[in-house]
Design a protein around this nucleic acid. Structure first.
Lengths: 236, 236
DNA sequence: CGCCACATTGAAACACTTCAAAGTCGGTGG
DNA sequence: CCACCGACTTTGAAGTGTTTCAATGTGGCG
């Protein structure tokens, strides 16, 4: 995969920023985007307190964002798959407030934020799309809030699986068979559970024939049952 | 309080949208804003599935937002105090995804969204401020996520109190003595706890001389102790 | 005054965590 | 090529914070 795929040629463009931009203007957007070298598993895209200069579109692979609390504990705040935009939480503070780390080999498109703002001044649909993206992120956070409040651990795990499934489907991939890019630890941390709990739930779901799990490979066998377990579709 | 206070004269302007707008341009913003009649306690500002046409700046009183899950359960997703903007979660879907209800008599400024977008095209600082507001909302949601994951109920309650305190202070009011605009039920629901748990924590905090509570009147007596209990400062 | 919604308190139940140990997978070097 | 190491995952048993159930208390308002 070349480092210089243009937005025109990118298979993700229907779900990424270009969505909002008319073909005639796509070059302008294309020109401000930097394609960096791939990140290896474990590498950071940015760290908390880095000055905020850009948002990033995930092109391949997967990332997680996390913060470290004052007590030194990690809190995973999100997972980002191809086509999704990461780094929008830094706009208000001028520096990033979370860390973004590659869960596996990943490539991203870097979109300098002040250039994006300039361009948004000229292209109303781009401004709207970006407002919309952020609004979507807020919506997803609300959904997550609901999930974490409505205690049941089963619901949480089911919801995450369904969310990943939906996001996979959006990229034109299978909604039933896929690979989890993150560890059990990350899942547990994200959902506010103990690793052991997540593990137990995976085995139980399997015993109930809702799921086939083999390490990070997952197959959803009984989607209705999984849905009944807990709702949630998204995460921007 | 007149229904026609202009942004110029509004005491909240330093923490609201006008912040971003030069005096010369303030009239333009001012002109697109509708000041509606006050909402009474329990009245809705908007409901889920209403078409999204505007965001709202709270001028006085307080609101809560909530969603109703498929099982019919309410989930409180946020509290909004004077100077704060509510309704931004509807942008991406063209209709509101939550309900906004007055916790007490409240007045709001309605800001038609497409007009705001138009104006943002002309006033870069307004566009930036609005991006920033949304980013701040995301940041606050992340913090809430951390709070709900890091289980302890004590931490959650302490954090909410500190958040309300900080937001009070931002408006130039007391950071130590204030009135909770929401019921114990709302607090519990928002924090993912049972009402009884919240109640018990309030009494315990009082026994530990961290707090004085009398119904909805609160006085923070030992802020460091409360901080030690759990971090979190915000909520946009 | 008495009703109703809201708030507090106590006791029992339970879901999830914590602690402990064993199992699995992938990679590296002998 | 196989053995071993470390990181991750699974499983079991005991502990605990929070919920649930039930009852009593309180305050505002017709």
């Amino acid at each position: 995969m070349s480092r210089h795929v243009s937005c025109n040629d990118c298979s993700l463009s229907p779900i990424c920023l270009p969505l909002a931009v008319a073909p005639a203007q796509l070059n302008e957007l294309d020109n401000i985007i930097h394609r960096g070298r791939p990140l290896r598993r474990g590498e950071h895209l940015y760290r908390a307190a880095d000055t905020f200069t850009a948002v990033f579109a995930v092109r391949s692979g997967a990332l997680k964002t996390y913060v470290i609390s004052d007590e030194g504990e990690e809190q995973v705040t999100g997972f980002y798959l191809p086509g999704e935009i990461v780094g929008m939480d830094g706009i208000s503070t001028a520096h990033h407030i979370s860390n973004a780390k590659a869960l596996e080999t990943a490539t991203v498109c870097e979109i300098p934020f002040h250039r994006l703002e300039e361009l948004s001044q000229k292209i109303p649909s781009l401004q709207h799309h970006f407002f919309s993206l952020m609004s979507e992120e807020i919506r997803a956070d609300r959904e997550l809030h609901r999930l974490l409040s409505k205690k049941s651990a089963d619901d949480r795990v089911a919801s995450l699986l369904l969310s990943l499934s939906a996001r996979n489907q959006r990229r034109g991939l299978s909604a039933t068979v896929f690979r989890l890019p993150m560890s059990r630890y990350d899942i547990a941390n994200y959902l506010g559970l103990a690793v052991e709990t997540v593990s137990r739930i995976f085995t139980r779901f399997q015993q109930q024939h809702m799921l086939k799990v083999n390490g990070r490979e997952v197959e959803i066998c009984d989607r209705p049952a999984l849905c009944g377990q807990g709702r949630l579709q998204e995460e921007a």
